[in-house]
Every structure is written in structure tokens, then in C-alpha cells.
Nucleic acid binder design. Structure first.
Lengths: 194, 194
DNA sequence: TCGACTTCTGACCGATCGGTCAGTACGCTG
DNA sequence: CAGCGTACTGACCGATCGGTCAGAAGTCGA
């Protein structure tokens, strides 16, 4: 593995755990036994390092939504496979996903974050294209943000690590449940109208 | 309104929007037309300012879980009212909730964040006391994190602001759905075992 | 052996950070 | 008026930040 790749991995972990603003180039360099100058030799700036670290995840998600419009037959039937692939991609890039979800507010001026925002907008508008109700959009947001949060939580060393396979199944199932319109009615609906 | 209260409000908004590490005392002071020294006169440190800003939200949530063990009759029947009160509290303190959820990783050494962590642990263990399965816990986490994310998103000026009343209902309904064990079986379960 | 290129480093720079401190303006009480 | 506590400020401090730069060390082909 090249020094550059090592730095990207270290940066990804640091940024996910302590935040982009909470991580210094010095610390990332120390993590891999290099100097701050070495980091700035491989990457033009701290932002460039963040971009290099986030790029694979963004590319993977871009790939998913590009191959999306092909299957147009039955949305409900296609949903499980779609959500499964989506969750697997999120799991593969959990650190980057966690960085994006929890820090996109503070980093709204960073280009790579803006690219992520556009990507999310595309996903959202695609998934709820035919029923862009506030309700559907909100449920989808809860699902995506919740899943991303779990991903970020899973890569911390505290608490016990859940079984990855079981986690994957629960994520897929829950996201699917939030994504599809509620087919079966809930029993007690509280005192809400509807 | 006293200068102190004004500063707390400004800090809450800054911290939620740009992150604790992304906000300087100088900026918060400028938001209210005061000087940096004035901020440090009212609060011993930047951490103390964060604590003062988060305290009302943490106190409110503490109040909720303290009044929890009283109703022990039927968990399922009590859930709607409980979740409703919970969501309303989160809505009242949306900025603080957003700060906590998205920055608790980067601020894990800050005492007020640790207090929040303990609070969340208490809530989680209380809500899934009788069925502490990974599944139930994960679903609950997704719901809480998702709702908190929506809250943080709602207080940004970008995009259109959704109808508060409708948002509240969707949040309650969705959280309730994720909280209660799935009473009715989903139709297509994909190619997962189980 | 001699450059040329890549990789990497320590020294250094200006800016900004959180925080300290001496001092000022003001209102109240005696 | 004097004295005192509250509210507030500008000047200043050390530390750390991201980033620049000149140069050292190694490799490689001519």
C-alpha cells in the first residue's frame, strides 16, 4: 500500500471519529508515522485530503443512481434489491457516509460535500418521484439518516460491536419499511387525525 | 432578555449550524453585537457556554425519563402518548438535539455531551427493557437518529420549511412504528434468510 | 559520475484560536 | 460625594492551525 493510500485511510478514520474540524494534518500524519509536510506533499490541502477520502464513496453512490432508471417495471417489486444494494454500498463506505451525514452542515462550503448534497437530492427525487409527499420524503430522510448514524456508531470502539450480518439485515428491512408506503395499517394510531 | 440569554440563543444557533468546533467565541459575540470578552465574562469558557446552551434540553429529557417508570400497565398502549411527549420535547429543543446527535463523536470529552450520552443510554435501556434484542435496539437508534437529523435539517434556511404540524405527526408516527415490534409481517422479504 | 525525478522533512510564516487581565463606564447605596 | 459591585471592553498572551519553502535522501537512466 502506498503512503498516499495509507494517509487516505487514516484521514477517513480521523475525520469520521473526531470530525474534519477536530482533526489536524499533524495528527493524521502522526497516525501513519509521517510528517505534516509529507501529507501536504501528497495532497494540496486539507480539503484535498478530505476530497480524496470521500471520492470512492461518492463514486460508488453515483454508480448506483446512474444504473437506476433502467429498471422501470415495478417499483415495489424492485425495491428490495435496490435497497439491499444501497445498504451494502453504505456499509462498504461507512466512514465516508458517517462523515457526510454528521458534518455536512459544518462543511457546507466544501466542494466535495456539495457534490454529496447534489447526490442525495438526486436519490431523494428519484425514490419519491411519483409520490413526492412531505410524508414520504420525511420517512425516507429518517431512514437514510438513521442508517448513516448507525454506520458511524458501529465504527467507534466503544460499546460492543453488533454482528455485521445481522446489522445488515435489520438496516435493509427497516429502510425498506420506511421507503415503501405502509401497506398494512398500524393498530393504535394514538389521537392523531389522518 | 438579558445579554446572557441572548448569548445562549446565539451560541445554540451557531453550534447547530456550523458545529461547536466550527464556531468561535468571536463570531457568537459578533452575532449579538458584543465583544469576545463579554462572552467570557458571562461564561467561564467556550465549554461552559455549550453547557449552558444544552442544559435546558437535557433537563427536559431527564424530566421525561424520570416520570417514566410510573406508568407500568401496558407498554404498547402507553407508547403513543410517550412517543408524542418525547417528540414534542425534541421539537422544542431541536437545536440542542441536533448538536448532540451530530457532534457527540467529536465532542466525546466534553462533560455535557457525556451527560447526554448517559441520558440516551437510559432511554434506550428503558424502552427496550424487556426485549433488548439487537434488532429492536437498532430500529430504535435509526428512529431516534433519523428524527434528530430531520430536526437539525429543519432549522437550516436552505430548502423549503415543511409544515411544523405535519412534520410532528410524521415523526410521531414513524418513531412509533420503529419502536413497537412489527406486529404485521411485511410482504416481500427479499432473499434474506429469517 | 552526473543530473533529474520522486519522496519526504524541519524550519518557518501569518492567522486565528481560547483565555487572561487591567481598566472603564455606570448605577446604586451610604 | 465617596465607595462598591456589575457589565463590559481592548490589548495582549501562548498555542495551534493550515500552508510554504529550501533542501536532504534515495532511485534511476544516460
Amino acid at each position: 500500500m502506498t503512503t498516499r493510500d495509507t494517509l487516505v485511510r487514516a484521514a477517513l478514520e480521523r475525520f469520521a471519529r473526531y470530525g474534519y474540524l477536530g482533526s489536524s494534518i499533524q495528527q493524521i500524519a502522526a497516525d501513519v508515522g509521517a510528517s505534516k509536510s509529507s501529507v501536504l506533499y501528497h495532497f494540496d490541502s486539507k480539503e484535498a485530503l478530505l476530497e480524496a477520502a470521500m471520492a470512492p464513496a461518492l463514486d460508488a453512490l453515483s454508480g448506483i443512481i446512474e444504473s437506476l432508471p433502467e429498471r422501470r417495471d415495478d417499483k415495489v417489486a424492485a425495491a428490495p434489491a435496490l435497497v439491499t444494494g444501497f445498504v451494502d454500498t453504505l456499509l462498504q463506505h461507512s466512514a465516508a457516509v458517517s462523515i457526510f451525514i454528521s458534518q455536512r452542515g459544518a462543511l457546507q462550503d466544501v466542494p466535495v460535500i456539495q457534490r454529496g448534497n447534489e447526490l442525495v437530492d438526486t436519490i431523494a427525487s428519484t425514490l419519491v418521484a411519483e409520490a413526492p409527499s412531505t410524508r414520504a420524503l420525511t420517512r425516507l430522510s429518517i431512514g437514510l439518516a438513521g442508517v448513516a448514524f448507525i454506520l458511524g456508531e458501529a465504527l467507534r470502539e466503544t460499546h460492543q460491536r453488533p454482528d455485521p450480518a445481522e446489522l445488515r439485515e435489520v438496516l435493509i428491512e427497516t429502510l425498506l419499511e420506511l421507503c415503501l408506503p405502509a401497506a398494512c395499517t398500524r393498530a393504535p394510531q394514538a389521537e392523531m387525525h389522518t
